[in-house]
């Protein structure tokens, strides 16, 4: 469903991704584990088309989208839940959702709200006034309003209370299982990723260095090793 081949991305002359390879099949939940500065956000932004690719290729379904503009990617079924959530702060929750549902059929927003009922009573609040957890739910709901086939999430647990992390994890698993939404999430929260992902890739210095199984994350030796990689 998504093929990333030898992806090189950088800011100016500073290389960040040095040939990432990743293959994601239909129905999967992929976690990408990495510390700050390893290129997680760069990878997500490049997949969304917000950063130009230096070399390599990205194929989504049957189309090569390596240099496709973000709005075309969005329209072809890729949704993005960015780091920091990027809620439109001066728009109400409802208008944030309407922005997600620009091209969706009527009723999409209501169905999404049924999945995430917590947002219902917040509809008329400005997005900027929500708590971090609520904003994260809103960002996911906004992404869902576009009826995506693939959802990219960048550190969805950052700065969020544990109860909502749980809720997010359950929601994503359910969406994956009932609506076969493909999920790629980059994280450094081991527990979250262990509960959510079925496949885990480790990103280090702009490369996917290895893949591990979710059960490995309960293995003390790996955890020590991973924590050590950050330093």
């Amino acid at each position: 469903m998504l093929e990333v081949r030898e992806l090189h991305v950088g800011y100016g002359r500073i290389p960040i991704l040095n040939g990432v390879n990743l293959s994601v099949v239909r129905g999967s939940r992929v976690g990408i584990l990495g510390h700050n500065g390893m290129g997680k956000t760069t990878l997500m932004r490049a997949l969304m088309g917000l950063l130009p690719v230096k070399s390599g290729a990205v194929v989504f379904e049957t189309a090569t989208i390596t240099s496709m503009q973000p709005h075309h990617r969005a329209r072809s079924g890729i949704a993005y839940v960015p780091q920091g959530r990027q809620i439109f702060p001066q728009l109400t929750v409802r208008d944030n959702l309407r922005m997600g549902a620009l091209r969706a059929p009527d009723g999409t927003m209501e169905r999404v709200l049924d999945r995430i009922p917590r947002l219902k009573r917040l509809l008329d609040r400005p997005g900027g006034a929500l708590s971090g957890g609520e904003q994260q739910l809103l960002a996911i709901a906004r992404a869902l309003c576009g009826k995506p086939k693939l959802m990219l999430l960048d550190e969805p647990t950052e700065g969020i209370q544990p109860s909502i992390i749980e809720e997010i994890s359950e929601l994503l698993i359910m969406l994956n299982e009932t609506e076969s939404l493909v999920i790629i999430v980059v994280e450094q929260n081991l527990e979250f990723i262990a509960g959510l992902a079925r496949r885990i890739a480790v990103l280090q210095k702009g490369l996917i260095v290895r893949e591990v199984a979710p059960t490995d994350l309960h293995n003390e030796q790996f955890v020590e090793e991973f924590v050590g990689m950050g330093t």
Binding site: L50, Q69, P70, H71, A74, P82, Q86, P89, Q90, G100
Partner: peptide, 11 residues
């Protein structure tokens, strides 16, 4: 408010 996010939503 956020041109990048808007384009990520299909604008």
């Amino acid at each position: 408010q956020n041109p990048e996010m808007a384009s990520s939503l299909g604008v």
